[in-house]
Write a protein that binds this DNA or RNA. Structure first.
Length: 490
RNA sequence: CGGGGUGUAGCGCAGCCCGGUUAGCGCAUCUGCUUUGGGAGCAGAGGGUCGCAGGUUCGAAUCCUGCCACCCCGACCA
């Protein structure tokens, strides 16, 4: 046994870190809280990017790129925004190093910058400064823009993928002539996020609205998708913000409308990050390691050739090459592991730990019989399949794995979503079972805060659908118009 | 920032209380032979400023002082 993965039941946090390490997704860096994304992790991210990017473009968005440095003064322009981000900004103050006799290498005092630069924690400010120059007329609108970038937030406590000081994400920033158009955009993106999570990641999500206290700094309304992890904790998987005219006012971004009047521009911003990889790991994987949904898996199928003698090797590798060609032609991402210095058992284990959805084993016996051994990672089932029509069988199996992962994640969420009208029962559910708890809430920040302080549970969202009903908040005794979803969260 | 912990080979650790030959062990690595349908076996080899800086001592990984870093648990967050 090279490295053991801590079982989930023993220590869920350690299990999560062990899975990342043994699947070679990421590594720690010399700098606290930063993460090295290894090829296995990055390939996964690239597949996520490709799918999302396609959906953004289909809905009329274009990619651009803005600088990593933002003048410090920009951050000060939107009051809520600065309050939200000021405490976690990396600040660049000098432009040079020099060797000092006493202290070694130091920032050269003579190179102190005229104005400090902030390493972007998000790009609203620099983008709205730019939009104020780009937008004059209603003809300049809308602007539907996205960027793939890295951002830095100086977090106090970090966790690989879930919260790192630097992370990769996409941030969309759109500008509109009317409030309705901006709200519609916010919801269009929310739908894209939910579709991506469910159809590609096989992660069921709940669409909802954040409460005022959980809202993005500078937003009028924050919409989100929330997912439930295997340990019963919730994770915010993506957010889409309706920014109103807040940033337009802060950066004096006005346009002349068809009636010849000056109006402030309406805004949205939205993002998902490498945190999604964390969600993927926590939702599907098991004590043996990572489990990847086929649609995002960099390797969908790994073929392990088995042979003893040299003449067997020739025959087996030739058959493996045929299978490879056949499956590739059918658009399946297959990898033939013909490395000689590793034994089959070792390879079986490697692909299991790395979450490859389907593993094929091909030995002299199979070649003689015209079969191949097929093992699926999610259920562990093994079967012998005929080489006849193999590409179709595998494609079907991949779909079945994809659907199976979604179904079991959904079943888990449903089993762990409970409704209550009693605060005592609410606490009991959180302590004994975890998961989502649906309860009435009077809509006040006071009650929300009290519940958070007493139970560590937060309102994950006010779901968009299916939770409206008249009732009473059991904590305050005040009337309520809708249930909301509470959970302890990452 | 508060609480706890850890720094010794690439990784994981022992040794430290009670100072004393050449600082050990497991995994990994390299070489050779045998192996190959579920993480191979045997034999050999390489690899260390014991976190950093002072101090005590004939002698410090070990005792003392100071510093630094990282990890875990809380408050904050995509």
């Amino acid at each position: 046994m090279a490295e053991a993965i801590t079982p989930r039941a023993t220590d869920y946090s350690q299990w999560y870190l062990d899975v990342i390490k043994s699947a070679k997704l990421a590594d720690y860096s010399p700098v606290r809280g930063c993460m090295i994304i290894r090829p296995n992790g990055y390939a996964l991210w690239e597949n996520m990017q490709a799918a999302l990017d396609g959906m953004f473009k289909e809905t009329g968005h274009e990619n651009a790129y803005f600088p990593i440095f933002i003048p410090q003064s920009f951050l000060a322009k939107e009051a809520d925004h600065v309050e939200g981000f000021a405490k976690e900004c990396a600040v660049v103050t000098h432009s040079r190093l020099k060797v000092d006799d006493e202290h070694g290498l130091i920032a050269d005092p003579d190179s102190k910058l005229e104005e400090n630069l902030i390493v972007r924690p998000t790009s609203e400010t620099i983008i709205w400064d730019t939009y104020s120059r780009w937008i004059q007329s209603w003809r300049d609108l809308p602007i539907l823009m996205n960027q793939w970038a890295n951002v830095v937030r100086w977090e106090m406590r970090t966790r690989l993928f879930l919260r790192t000081m630097e992370f990769l994400w996409q941030e969309g920033h759109t500008a509109h002539a009317t409030e309705q158009e901006a709200v519609d955009e916010t919801l269009t993106i929310l739908d894209i996020y939910a579709k991506f999570a469910e159809e590609y990641m096989a992660v069921p999500v709940i669409k909802g609205v954040k409460t005022a206290s959980e809202r993005f700094a500078g937003a009028v309304e924050t919409y989100c998708i929330e997912a439930l992890m295997q340990d019963g904790k919730a994770l915010q998987a993506g957010t889409s913000h309706f920014l109103g005219q807040n940033f337009a006012k802060a950066f004096d971004c006005k346009f002349q409308n068809k009636d010849n009047e000056l109006e402030y521009v309406w805004a949205t911003s939205w993002g998902v990050s490498t945190r999604l990889i964390g969600a993927l790991i926590m939702i599907h994987s098991d004590d043996q390691g990572l489990i990847l949904p086929p649609r995002l898996a960099p390797k969908q199928v790994a073929l392990v050739p088995i042979y003893r003698k040299d003449e067997d090797m020739q025959v087996v590798l030739a058959a493996a090459a045929e299978i490879e060609k056949e499956l590739k032609a059918a658009g399946i991402r297959i990898f033939v592991d013909d490395r000689d210095g590793f034994r089959p058992g070792w390879k079986f284990n490697e692909y299991e730990v790395q979450g490859v959805p389907i593993r094929l084993a091909l030995g002299p016996r199979d070649v003689a019989n015209g079969t191949v051994e097929v093992a699926r990672r999610d259920t562990g089932e093994k079967q012998s399949m005929s080489r006849e029509g193999l590409a179709d069988s595998i494609a079907e199996l991949l779909e079945s794995v994809q659907q199976g992962l979604f179904d079991s994640a959904l079943a888990h969420r449903e089993e762990n979503t409970r409704s209550t009208d009693s605060y005592d029962e609410f606490k009991q559910i959180l302590d004994e079972k975890g998961g989502f708890v649906s309860m009435h809430w009077d809509g006040t920040a006071e009650t929300e805060l009290r519940i958070k302080e007493e139970t560590k549970a937060t309102i994950r969202c006010i779901p968009l659908e299916g939770y409206e009903e008249d009732g009473v908040d059991p904590v305050s005794g005040q009337p309520s118009k809708s249930r909301v979803l509470f959970a302890r969260a990452y």
